[in-house]
């Protein structure tokens, strides 16, 4: 239960960064923090007390394994996270070369 709550707090910290910061790099960092909290939450969901890593040992069929399904989902999500982060950083570096700043209030077309 405590671990779930800490995970949620980590998510909220990332959300706070996305909402309050006006610097594009800080926003990208906050987004990846939110991503990381979700990965941790999934890994927590699959954990079983006394379980071992899900690698089959034919010599000992009575073992308890942790749930492999959330791990497979997170494996996909981590790689997708890398793709989105690199895309984000490419857009950020283009914006920096055009406007010379990371501040989204200074960038004309992103002003909210």
């Amino acid at each position: 239960m405590i671990a779930y709550i800490m995970c949620f707090v980590l998510f909220l910290v990332g959300l706070y960064g996305v909402i309050t910061k006006r610097n594009l790099v800080k926003i990208a960092v906050s987004l990846s923090i939110m991503e990381i909290s979700v990965f941790l939450f999934f890994a927590l969901l699959g954990y079983i007390d006394g379980g071992v890593a899900p690698i089959v040992d034919p010599a000992d069929p009575a073992r308890v394994y942790v749930d492999p399904l959330p791990q497979a989902l997170v494996l996909t999500a981590i790689v997708i996270g890398l793709a989105t982060t690199s895309m984000l950083m490419a857009i950020i570096i283009r914006l920096y070369r055009k406007y010379g700043t990371f501040d989204i209030r200074e960038i004309k077309n992103l002003r909210g």
Binding site: G46, Y47, V52
Partner: peptide, 14 residues
């Protein structure tokens, strides 16, 4: 700690 070595390897690289 959560017994997910595959995820740990991938996360280090990523």
């Amino acid at each position: 700690l959560l017994k997910a070595p595959d995820l740990a390897i991938v996360q280090i690289v990523v």
